[in-house]
């Protein structure tokens, strides 16, 4: 474990984190999919997990929900008032899902059950998490559908998922995720299957709803620009390791880790004509360096990088809390 997470919170406005994840390691067979991931989420905060495929973004969210199959999980995930999510008996976990934490999945079309109406899927969740009667659940469902911007909420209650557009399906997913008033929402690439104009609608909806409820939200995103627009803080992952984290502006505009800088330089903004393509690809798990996993592609790599994993260290001496800017690199920018 690195020293960082045990430091007291020093930033003035940083509240006690609602979630503290320490040393999350996930093994699948011989592969270490996540390698000692530590991060904290402040109350009411939105956090983006960014990185490329295979970085482990979705694995973190799925591990927190305890929905990871066939994998060995180590580490602690302390959810305020609930204990260590990774160690709770399944019986307790079932009660927490939907009421303390819930997940919005990437592809609403396949996450919704095709054989039940969307109204039924929502009322089932409402009755289970809030213990409502049938009639109360129905009234509450119509209210929720209205709040997520579904036109004709009464009529849409009896629609099957396939009768709705992708954007509408995602709105239904958001309503179901919010049904039990969770204080932690995990949104796994909630808009990657949608058109850009619909993407803006859904992201705004999720942000407005979490803010209105004072909930915290972890977004899994691959789009850095979207992350900067929607989240207070960003955690950058590479091949299962956290390489940099902190307030969005500091991470993206004062990046210390070479990978963060590279990732940002690959984002094509409208009008940009310069693009330097990085060399190589993420090494397969069988050839992963034991130290910094980015060492094989890093333009600033030193001899020690491949053999010795750099710990997360504060980017500034006067900001050393778990929510402040941190990076893991032996030869930072």
């Amino acid at each position: 474990m690195n020293d960082m997470t045990s430091h007291p919170v020093t930033t003035q406005d940083a509240a006690e984190p609602i979630l503290r994840l320490e040393g999350l390691t996930v093994h699948r067979g011989a592969a270490k999919i996540l390698d000692r991931v530590s991060l904290s989420l402040g109350r009411g905060e939105t956090l983006a997990l960014v990185g490329e495929s295979g970085a482990g973004k979705s694995t973190i969210a799925t591990a927190l929900m305890r929905l990871l199959d066939g994998a060995r999980v180590e580490g602690r995930a302390e959810l305020d008032g609930a204990g260590d999510l990774l160690a709770l008996p399944e019986r307790r976990m079932v009660r927490l899902r939907g009421s303390r934490l819930s997940m919005i999945f990437q592809d609403a079309g396949s996450a919704l059950n095709p054989s039940y109406t969307v109204g039924r899927q929502l009322t089932t969740t409402l009755r289970r998490t809030l213990g409502l009667s049938r009639a109360e659940a129905r009234a509450k469902a119509v209210e929720l559908f209205t709040s997520v911007g579904i036109n004709d909420p009464d009529g849409r209650m009896s629609a099957f998922p396939h009768q709705l557009s992708g954007g509408m399906q995602q709105r239904v997913m958001v309503a179901i995720a919010l049904a039990g008033n969770p204080d932690l929402l995990l949104a796994d690439e909630p808009t990657s299957a949608l058109d850009v104009t619909i993407q803006a609608q859904i992201v705004r909806l999720i942000l407005a709803q979490t803010r209105a409820r004072g909930a915290s939200c972890i977004f899994v995103l691959h789009d850095l620009a979207l992350a900067s627009q929607s989240c207070d803080r960003i955690v950058v992952l590479y091949a299962g390791q956290v390489v940099e984290s902190g307030p969005s502006r500091e991470v993206l505009e004062r990046s210390r880790h070479p990978y963060t800088r590279q990732l940002k330089s690959c984002v094509l903004e409208i009008g940009s004509k310069d693009l330097t393509a990085p060399e190589g690809t993420v090494p397969p798990h069988s050839e992963m360096p034991v130290g910094c996993r980015f060492a094989t592609r890093c333009p600033r790599a030193l001899p020690r990088c491949a053999g010795e994993a750099p710990p997360l260290v504060p980017a500034r001496d006067d900001a050393t809390g778990p929510l402040d800017h941190q990076f893991a690199c032996w030869n930072p920018e």
């Binding site: 850009v196 619909i198 803006a200 705004r204 789009d223 627009q229 929607s230 969005s248 993206l252």
Partner: peptide
């Protein structure tokens, strides 16, 4: 379409 394209640190526009 132009406004909906993600841009660094711009507020997400009214869709």
């Amino acid at each position: 379409l132009r406004a909906a394209a993600p841009q660094f640190f711009e507020p997400i526009p009214e869709p």
